[in-house]
Design a protein around this nucleic acid. Structure first.
Lengths: 128, 128
DNA sequence: CTGGATCCATTGTGATACTG
DNA sequence: CAGTATCACAATGGATCCAG
């Protein structure tokens, strides 16, 4: 990711610690997928067609380094790898579920306002 | 923020809708602060010394556009503004609480692995 | 099949000066 | 006091090629 971070994370707050772990674009989806039994990189790629290999690799690597998932390497040719949730990773599932539910419960409203926000912000600036 | 987004959000999933709303660096902290009664921009600035005015303005504006907070303008000089949570915004509080708690419960471990991850990722690349 | 290397595009944030 | 304009840059993601 980076050799040395220039902008520090405000870790005084638990929120920012959790955000550092779950913040990547696909990390929560990856945790869900692994929990659902989609444990091998090739299968995860199939499950998320717009997720590229590079990003997948990096986010898995970070999740592993953060102690959220563990990696089992089968010494075969071709290589085989399986990821699993650690207990710490599993303890995130309730949070992820709540977020997924909240988004789904408010889907129609959110899709509308998110779309409107695109058109709003920084356009007013052009009409100065 | 931007005129037109080039990289689409995968909104098929509720997770990404929620992430779009809560994803900004300070948004969850802002929701907490407003809920705790810190409702005016100047006071929020005091509460978060490393949060700059520009970012504060933008994230408040987006939260408002997303229907999470509402803005009351008192026609005075100097101007006075107060933000409040909408019911939709208040419905996010349990999620934010869970994330805050999870981070605090695992603080010592997380601080360690987050720090280690900095040093690990992309350094192995230099030693190729 | 897994995953690193390289290069580039996009998005998000920090700093400052300024206006009403 | 609240908020925008402008600039610069950090952080993250995407595309492609390559190696074991």
């Amino acid at each position: 990711m980076r050799y040395e971070r220039k902008i520090p994370i405000p870790i005084e707050c638990g929120l920012h610690l959790t955000k550092e772990v779950l913040g990547g674009k696909w990390k929560m989806s990856l945790i869900n997928a692994i929990h659902a039994g989609i444990k091998r990189p090739a299968r995860i790629e199939q499950a998320f067609p717009t997720l590229t290999k590079r990003v997948l690799s990096r986010q898995l690597k970070e999740l592993e380094a953060h102690g959220i998932i563990s990696k089992e390497i089968f010494p075969q040719l071709p290589p085989k790898v399986e990821y699993s949730l650690t207990p710490l990773g599993a303890s995130l599932l309730p949070i992820i579920d709540m977020m997924d539910n909240w988004g789904n419960e408010n889907r129609s409203f959110l899709e509308k306002v998110i779309e409107e926000t695109r058109l709003m912000v920084e356009i007013g600036n052009h009409a100065h």
